[in-house]
Design a protein around this nucleic acid. Structure first.
Lengths: 231, 231
DNA sequence: CGCTATGTTGATCCATATCAATAAGTGTGG
DNA sequence: CCACACTTATTGATATGGATCAACATAGCG
């Protein structure tokens, strides 16, 4: 494994506190792979053979049941996914596929568990990571159960613009996937964008412009306990 | 703190592997309290002063936003809640209230974090607990996004009856709360019960009878990756 | 008992899904 | 570099799941 990738991994909070020997041991079994877009990496129900780390590109986590499918999250560099399944040695609950050309590190789950057992700092870092993942999913559930689709979209747009501060930005994913992520159909998302026009939202292709953030905020009523990414 | 409670706590997987000294230290700041029904224990947004353990009774975890409210989960003995907030020292994402007369142990979050930092076994146990919580919420999200309310109810009933195996059982909560938990209104739940009659479900008050489990299963299509409590 | 909260049922409304048609991108190979 | 094919996005028409409102029944509980 090239040194540059090693350093990228070590910069992750998840690995940065580990003892050097343990980190080395973990890297020994690791390998890096480049994938083209739209490649299935894992399927829900599979045994958790590897902990995955996205170094470049992006990955869609999605779920299926009875012919239906929904997008759960997007993983962007540099972060891991399916950590819970790896440490529990339980089947993946989500499938994953690349959205674009992506570079992924694969760490054998068994190594992860072994080293987790003997490196306290690593175990504690995993706690932090899992707690954050857990809280994200809880926030997402609140979003789904307490808000209408129009409110979910409004808050999503505020979160996206909030991170940049600019009144105008590009959607980071296809509208089709955004719809699925927000728990609606593509048709309904189209209409929801129309529905936000009175609150100062203008859409041109994938470019979003928020002309009156106060107006939109009044409508969306964002909450620290649902919409804050950090904490 | 009475010895019997101590033992109950120690029997929890979360604490059973700890070094005795650390467990003792954790118990030193702990105290037990008895609450009547319908008492608010914590409110979302509060600082996580205590990790809570339910010894007896039951606790409702719920969330509010903009005048709406939804039930997220029920905590039954013996288990903990709001572990993620405690270890992260981040505000509670959910409120909690007793459903019935309940005995709760309160462990100062600061002690939890201190001991988590020096007891590897404890840290690893927390990982297991959090991973399980995380997976539960993911399953719940799949249930919400991939199924209609009728399907959610059908699967809920199968899960409840499955754990006993008996064709007839009592609902463990008010229908009002069940509706909220499943993401629907009480009226809609009433009609959903009617809607499951063709699949062999009979409701008499809070008693549910499943006359033809195969028929119901064909409709509900339960999945290991959504409906399995374990793993 | 009688009060109050819960549950049921019916009527209606609304949000969202579905179906269908078209338009607009996007990528590919000639 | 363009033409074609294919996917995505939009728009309209309609259907439907689920919410809301209202009335009433029922069941706990003081």
């Amino acid at each position: 494994m090239p040194e540059s990738y090693r350093q990228e991994l070590q910069s992750l909070k998840l690995f940065s506190g580990m003892e050097k020997d343990n980190f080395d041991a973990l890297m020994r079994g690791a390998y890096v792979q480049n994938f083209p877009p739209r490649i299935d990496l894992i399927s829900e129900g599979d045994a958790p053979d590897f902990l995955h780390v996205v170094l470049a590109g992006s990955v869609d986590l999605y779920c299926s049941w009875n012919g239906r499918e929904t997008s759960m999250a997007t993983v962007r560099p540099v972060s891991t996914f399916i950590l819970a399944a790896s440490v529990q040695n339980a089947p993946y609950l989500m499938s994953a596929r690349t959205l674009e050309k992506s570079r992924i590190v694969l760490l054998p789950s068994e190594d992860v568990r072994t080293i987790f057992d003997r490196d306290g700092a690593f175990a504690r870092a995993i706690v932090g990571e899992l707690a954050q993942c857990y809280r994200s999913v809880v926030k997402n559930t609140k979003d789904l159960k307490l808000r209408t689709s129009l409110e979910r979209l409004a808050n999503y747009l505020l979160r996206q613009s909030g991170s940049t501060g600019a009144p105008s930005f590009e959607l980071k994913m296809e509208k089709r996937r955004l719809a699925s992520f927000l728990g609606m159909t593509p048709e309904n998302l189209s209409r929801a964008f129309r529905g936000l026009e009175p609150y100062g939202v203008t859409v041109t292709g994938s470019r979003i412009e928020i002309t009156d953030a106060n107006d939109l905020t009044d409508f969306a009523k964002p909450s620290r306990l649902i919409d804050d990414y950090a904490s």
